[in-house]
Simulated scan of single mutants.
Amino acid sequence: MTRQASIGVIKQLRDLLSQLTPHEYTENLAVLNHSSIGQHVRHTIEFFQCLIKGSLIGIVDYDGRERNLLIETNLPFALNILTDIEHSITTEPDLCRKLKIRANYDGSNFELIESNFMRELVYMIEHSIHHFALIRIGIQEHFKHIQIEPTFGVAYSTIKYKQEILVFEN
């Protein structure tokens, strides 16, 4: 279920991005504090890349991720990476693979926190949805011609809660 949900958020993003022009993808938007859709996509993609790369050595360092500006400036490149990420998640042989997460909050010391691949996929889902909500705001304000799926940028728990309210009210 977690694997499918993570693949689902990647597909949601890919479907939305396929509607954007390269200019729309890279345009700095005032409503996003002058960042672009591409910058939010880059950030989201890089977290997935950190998990996948880190799972090979057993240590994931989200803060030490490579910041690849090509992801935020080249829409076809970003779409290809999303396909690669989906493939990596689909073919991951051990969702319970133990990992350590490197955390550093004071700039000098770091901790290694116990986790596993599936727990980090849960984090990827929530982290992605948070950035999707920001992307949604940018698109709704600046690119009104883009069709946004109603659940894009909405947490699974919120979707479930709203469905329960509708059932209860009817």
Rank of each mutant, 00 (worst) to 15 (best):
A5K: 12
I10D: 02
I10K: 10
L16R: 01
L16K: 03
L17W: 12
L20M: 07
T21K: 08
H23N: 15
H23G: 05
E24R: 14
Y25Q: 11
Y25S: 08
T26C: 15
T26V: 15
E27W: 01
A30Q: 13
N33R: 13
S35Y: 10
S36V: 11
S36D: 09
I37T: 03
H40S: 05
V41K: 05
V41E: 06
R42A: 07
R42C: 05
H43K: 06
I45W: 08
I45G: 10
I45K: 12
E46I: 13
E46G: 11
F47Y: 15
Q49K: 15
Q49M: 15
Q49G: 06
Q49S: 13
C50V: 03
C50P: 05
G54A: 07
L56P: 03
I57Q: 11
G58I: 09
V60L: 07
D61Y: 11
Y62I: 06
Y62L: 06
D63Q: 14
E66V: 13
R67F: 10
L69H: 10
L69Q: 10
L70G: 04
L70C: 11
E72P: 10
T73H: 13
T73V: 02
L75R: 12
L75E: 03
P76H: 13
F77P: 10
F77K: 12
L79R: 12
N80D: 15
I81Q: 09
I81N: 05
T83G: 05
T83S: 12
D84V: 10
D84G: 04
D84A: 13
I85F: 13
E86F: 09
E86T: 04
E86G: 07
H87K: 12
H87T: 09
T91A: 07
T91M: 08
L95N: 03
C96E: 11
C96R: 10
K98P: 00
L99C: 09
L99V: 04
K100Q: 14
I101T: 01
R102V: 02
N104S: 15
N104A: 09
N104D: 08
G107K: 03
F110T: 02
F110M: 02
L112S: 04
L112Y: 09
I113M: 03
I113D: 02
I113L: 12
E114H: 14
S115F: 06
N116D: 12
N116C: 10
F117R: 00
F117D: 00
F117W: 05
F117M: 00
E120S: 03
L121T: 00
V122R: 04
M124G: 02
I125K: 04
H127D: 04
I129G: 02
H130F: 04
H131D: 02
H131V: 00
F132L: 01
R136A: 01
R136N: 02
G138W: 01
I139K: 07
I139M: 07
E141F: 09
E141Q: 14
H142W: 00
H142L: 01
F143V: 07
F143Q: 01
H145G: 02
I146R: 04
I146T: 06
I146E: 10
Q147F: 05
I148W: 05
E149V: 01
P150W: 03
T151P: 02
G153C: 07
A155Y: 09
A155I: 11
Y156P: 01
Y156E: 01
T158V: 10
K160C: 04
E164K: 14
L166Q: 14
V167N: 14
